[in-house]
Simulated scan of single mutants.
Amino acid sequence: MASWPLQDAKARLSEVVNAAKRDGPQIITRRGVEEAVVVPIDQWKELTRSVKPTLLEVLQSGPQFDLNIPPRGLVRMRKAVRF
């Protein structure tokens, strides 16, 4: 991974993006401290997809079973309890 000072990255953004596509992630530093990373979009999509599943994926990955819910109106209701 290459490292780019923030000033250079701002001035040569096209080069940073091209380097990310060609060589992989590019680190951007500010005063010598790593602050950000530019990654190719396909790698970003892969990372974000694997980090957290959607709610639908979580629900579909759970146990599969049939709920025995009686049709509406066939269940007898209990009388309310009064105190």
Rank of each mutant, 00 (worst) to 15 (best):
M1H: 14
M1D: 10
A2D: 07
A2G: 08
S3M: 11
W4P: 01
P5F: 09
Q7H: 09
D8L: 08
A9E: 03
K10R: 10
K10P: 03
A11N: 09
R12S: 00
R12Y: 04
L13H: 04
L13Y: 11
S14L: 04
E15N: 14
E15V: 12
E15K: 11
V17D: 02
V17E: 07
V17Y: 03
N18K: 13
A20S: 14
K21I: 00
R22W: 00
R22G: 01
D23T: 07
D23G: 05
G24R: 06
P25E: 13
P25M: 05
P25G: 15
Q26M: 10
Q26S: 11
Q26W: 04
I27Y: 06
I28W: 06
I28H: 09
T29L: 05
R30I: 05
R30N: 12
R31Q: 08
R31V: 05
G32C: 07
V33R: 10
V33C: 01
V33I: 09
E34C: 02
V37T: 14
V38C: 04
V38G: 04
V39S: 10
V39W: 04
P40Q: 03
I41E: 03
Q43V: 12
Q43Y: 13
E46F: 02
L47N: 04
L47P: 02
T48R: 07
T48G: 02
S50N: 14
V51R: 04
K52S: 02
K52R: 09
T54H: 01
T54Y: 03
L55A: 07
L56Q: 08
L56D: 09
E57D: 11
L59T: 06
L59Q: 08
Q60F: 02
S61R: 08
S61Y: 03
S61C: 01
G62C: 10
P63Q: 13
P63M: 14
Q64F: 03
Q64S: 13
Q64C: 02
I69S: 11
P71M: 10
P71N: 15
P71C: 10
R72L: 11
G73I: 11
L74E: 13
V75M: 06
V75P: 00
V75Q: 11
M77N: 08
M77V: 13
M77I: 13
K79I: 06
V81N: 15
V81C: 10
V81Q: 15
R82W: 06
F83V: 15
